[in-house]
Design a protein around this nucleic acid. Structure first.
Lengths: 218, 218
DNA sequence: CGAGGACTGGACCAAACAGTCCAGATGACC
DNA sequence: GGTCATCTGGACTGTTTGGTCCAGTCCTCG
C-alpha cells in the first residue's frame, strides 16, 4: 500500500508527472479529511490547505466539488478492494475467514471504533444526494462481496462447505454485519459491537461447514 | 400516530401552546428534510421554509443549528423507540420476531431501500462531529437493543430459547444486521440486502431455539 | 385590564463557501 | 532552444449560510 497510482486521471489530455502527483495529493488529502469530518462538512479550502495546493490546482484537476467527491469514491473503492483482495483472494478455509475478521477488528480497535468504514459512511451520506456516486458505491460493495463469495465458493467446491450453502447470500449477510458493526462501533466509540456482529455472521457461516471436517490449511 | 408531543421543550421558562406547536412544526420539518438530504446538506432556510416559520422563530426555540440537530436526535430517537416498543414489547416467540422483521422490510421496500434508518444515518454523520449527539444516539441504540434482548430473555425464561443463548449479544448482532442491511439497501436502492441480512440474524437466533419446541402463540 | 414575558415577521449582517480569472512558471516535444 | 499546452499562485467574486436585531403582536397571570 501507499504509493501506487490507484486511480487514473479521467480526461485524455496530455498529463505530466507533476500533474499526476498533484492530483494524487489532493485526493489523498480529501480522503483523509472526509473520512473524519464527512464529505459535506469538509470544504474545498480544507482540502486545499491540507494538500498544500491552490484553488486553481483543485479546479484544474477536478471540474467542481462533486467531481472531486466522485473521484474520491473511486479512489477509496480502489484502495479498499486492493486491501481486501490481499486478505480474501486466497481464502480457502474457515480459519482464513477468522483471520480476516481479526484483521478488521484490530484495525478498527486502533481508533476505538471511530470513523467507521470509508465506503459505508460515504454510502450513507451520498446515496440520496448523488446518484452517480451511489451507483459506483453499490458496485464497489458488490465487488467486495464477490471477493468473499468467491472464497466461499472455493470452500464449497473443496468440500469444506455444504452444497446447500449459498455463498452470495452468506457474503451479503457478512457484509451487512460488517457495515452494521462499523456503524454501531462508531456510535459507541467501542469496537465491541463490531466483534459481536462479525462473530454472529461467522457463526452463521460455520453452521454450513461440513460436519467433522477439519480446517486444512496451516 | 402523529400528533403526540414526543419531546418536551428543554428550557424551564413559561411556554405557550402556540410555542410548543411551532417548535414541533420545526422539528417535524427538520426531521423530514434531514432524513432525505442528510443533516449537513440541509440548511436552516430549508427548514424555515418547510416549516412555514421565520428566522426568529427558529432561533427563539433553538439556540443554533447544533441545538436543533441535537433536539432532532432526541426527537427521532423517541419516535423510533415508540414505534419499536409497539412491535417488540410483547415479543415472546420466534414468530413474533419474524413479524417484526416483515414489518421493517415492508416499510423499507416502500421506498426501494432509500433513506435508510433515521438513527443510523445520523449516527454516521454525527458521531465524529458532535460528541453529545453521538452519546445520545449510542444510548438510543442501547435502548432499542434492550427492547429486543428483553424479548429474547422472555423467550429464554419461557423455555423457547436455550439457556446458553446470550440475549444481549444476539440483540447486538440483530441490530448490526439491521443497520448494515439498511445501509446496503440504501446504496443498492433495493431492499433485498436488508432481507438477507435480517434473515441471517434470525437464522442465527433460530439456532438457539430449543429443539422440537413449537411456537406457542397464535 | 394592564404589565411583562412569550412569540413572530422579516430585514439585515458577517463569514464561509464554491467557483472564476489571469498572469506567470514549468515541462514536453519538435 | 523554441513553442505551446500543462500546471500553478493567489487575488477576486457572487452566493449561500448561520446568525442577529428590533419592532410589533399575542398570551398569561395577577
Amino acid at each position: 500500500m501507499g504509493d501506487e497510482q490507484v486511480v487514473a486521471p479521467t480526461k485524455q489530455r496530455r498529463i505530466s508527472q507533476r500533474g499526476i502527483a498533484t492530483r494524487e495529493r489532493i485526493l489523498e488529502a480529501a480522503n483523509r479529511l472526509m473520512l473524519v469530518r464527512g464529505v459535506n462538512a469538509t470544504t474545498l479550502d480544507d482540502v486545499r490547505e491540507a494538500s498544500q495546493t491552490s484553488k486553481s490546482q483543485l479546479y484544474h484537476h477536478f471540474a467542481d466539488k462533486q467531481e472531486l467527491v466522485r473521484a474520491l469514491v473511486k479512489y477509496r473503492g480502489a484502495l479498499v478492494l486492493q486491501r481486501e483482495r490481499g486478505g480474501l483472494e486466497r481464502l480457502r478455509s474457515f480459519s482464513g475467514l477468522v483471520r480476516w475478521r481479526n484483521a478488521l477488528v484490530q484495525a478498527n480497535s486502533l481508533n476505538n471504533g471511530k470513523y467507521g468504514c470509508g465506503l459505508g459512511s460515504m454510502a450513507v451520506e451520498l446515496s440520496d444526494q448523488d446518484e452517480q456516486a451511489r451507483s459506483v458505491l453499490s458496485e464497489t460493495f458488490a465487488s467486495w462481496e464477490k471477493l468473499i463469495s468467491d472464497g466461499l465458493h472455493r470452500m464449497r467446491d473443496s468440500g469444506a462447505l455444504r452444497q446447500d450453502a449459498d455463498p452470495e447470500k452468506l457474503a451479503t449477510g457478512l457484509m451487512a454485519a460488517l457495515q452494521g458493526g462499523y456503524l454501531l462501533a462508531n456510535a459507541a466509540h467501542d469496537v465491541a459491537p463490531m466483534e459481536v456482529a462479525l462473530d454472529m455472521a461467522l457463526e452463521h457461516i460455520k453452521s454450513f461447514l461440513v460436519e467433522g471436517e477439519q480446517p486444512r490449511d496451516r
